[in-house]
Simulated assay, not measured.
Amino acid sequence: MKDHNLIYLSVSIILIALVDSIGALLGFWSIEGAERNQILICESLILFALLTNSWLIYRKTIAITQYPAHKQIALLSFGSLFLCLLGDITNFNLPETFYRYESAIKHDYLADSIYFFLPGYTLLLLAGIRAIELNTKDKRFIRYPVIAGCVVGMISMVMMHLPNTGWFITISTGIYAMLIGVVGFTGLAFILSCGGFEASKSELLVGMGFILAAVADAIIGNFWIYGNQGEGFYPQVRYINWMVYIASQSLVIHLPHLLVINSKYFHDKNSKITTP
């Protein structure tokens, strides 16, 4: 598949997700209404299209590069999305059960999805760190995002946590808050490692994808899990999160292909191969 087709597919996925969410926010349909099954089918197709695009990017990346680092990042990127999509299915709450673990958090099924999102975003984090290492040898670009992400994650957890929340929800969301905080700052570090304001539009968009991942989960934590005294601002927060999340994933899956393109451009420009 040609490069622009991969981009068009991501743009189409984002636009469909926007229509899905905006239509729900405007009251044309609702996940709590009679259209629930149709909405879940539509969103499942969106996720499948996203996974397909990620697979195509993975295949194209390993087909046009000989660099082990690029192939490793491509595998990490695809594995990350695959695990995260399993988390998305968990968040669909197909059995429609609430207050499964305790009486304080209505949508505590979201904690179950962390079993998939935690390793999924860990793989994405590793891909991001590896990409930064290809851009610069300055370890501060890795060290500072980790420190800042953990600090911001802990602060966010303290601010949104409810005092009567059980240990399982508290520990799982606390650990995850720090991880996703690091993911967000890694996106910023990636942009800076690409030259900051001098980074290309593609580099800015991919870095923004990492940042949007942190924003999407901040929305979940503050407004879906702990919001409204544990009741959650549901379903509106679900629609908003869906838009941000799909945009994030649609951008970050292009990381491996972007690195290959940049490397190929560098090779053509300098008329020699430089192995990362």
Rank of each mutant, 00 (worst) to 15 (best):
residue 252 V to C: 06
residue 237 V to R: 02
residue 246 I to F: 00
residue 228 N to D: 14
residue 241 N to E: 14
residue 259 L to E: 07
residue 237 V to H: 00
residue 259 L to T: 03
residue 248 S to R: 00
residue 260 V to A: 12
residue 246 I to R: 03
residue 245 Y to D: 04
residue 239 Y to R: 06
residue 251 L to T: 05
residue 259 L to N: 07
residue 231 E to H: 11
residue 252 V to M: 12
residue 260 V to S: 11
residue 234 Y to N: 11
residue 250 S to C: 10
residue 248 S to P: 05
residue 253 I to Q: 13
residue 234 Y to R: 08
residue 231 E to G: 07
residue 258 L to G: 07
residue 259 L to A: 07
residue 251 L to G: 06
residue 229 Q to F: 13
residue 241 N to D: 05
residue 241 N to A: 02
residue 250 S to K: 07
residue 234 Y to T: 13
residue 239 Y to S: 09
residue 230 G to K: 04
residue 225 I to A: 09
residue 240 I to Y: 00
residue 229 Q to T: 06
residue 248 S to M: 04
residue 261 I to K: 15
residue 256 P to E: 13
residue 257 H to R: 14
residue 245 Y to L: 13
residue 261 I to F: 04
residue 232 G to C: 11
residue 229 Q to P: 02
residue 256 P to D: 10
residue 255 L to T: 10
residue 248 S to K: 00
residue 226 Y to W: 12
residue 246 I to S: 00
residue 252 V to N: 03
residue 242 W to T: 02
residue 257 H to W: 10
residue 252 V to L: 14
residue 255 L to S: 10
residue 247 A to K: 02
residue 240 I to C: 00
residue 237 V to K: 02
residue 244 V to T: 13
residue 230 G to L: 08
residue 250 S to Q: 05
residue 251 L to D: 11
residue 227 G to N: 09
residue 231 E to R: 10
residue 235 P to M: 06
residue 242 W to D: 01
residue 236 Q to L: 05
residue 245 Y to R: 09
residue 226 Y to C: 04
residue 246 I to C: 01
residue 233 F to Y: 15
residue 252 V to E: 03
residue 235 P to H: 10
residue 259 L to S: 05
residue 229 Q to R: 09
residue 226 Y to H: 13
residue 247 A to M: 12
residue 248 S to W: 00
residue 250 S to M: 05
residue 233 F to D: 05
residue 236 Q to D: 09
residue 249 Q to T: 02
residue 235 P to Y: 05
residue 252 V to G: 06
residue 239 Y to N: 10
residue 225 I to R: 05
residue 225 I to T: 14
residue 254 H to G: 02
residue 235 P to R: 06
residue 226 Y to T: 04
residue 246 I to E: 02
residue 243 M to S: 10
residue 241 N to Q: 13
residue 249 Q to W: 07
residue 227 G to D: 07
residue 242 W to K: 04
residue 228 N to Y: 12
residue 240 I to W: 01
residue 248 S to D: 08
residue 252 V to H: 05
residue 248 S to C: 14
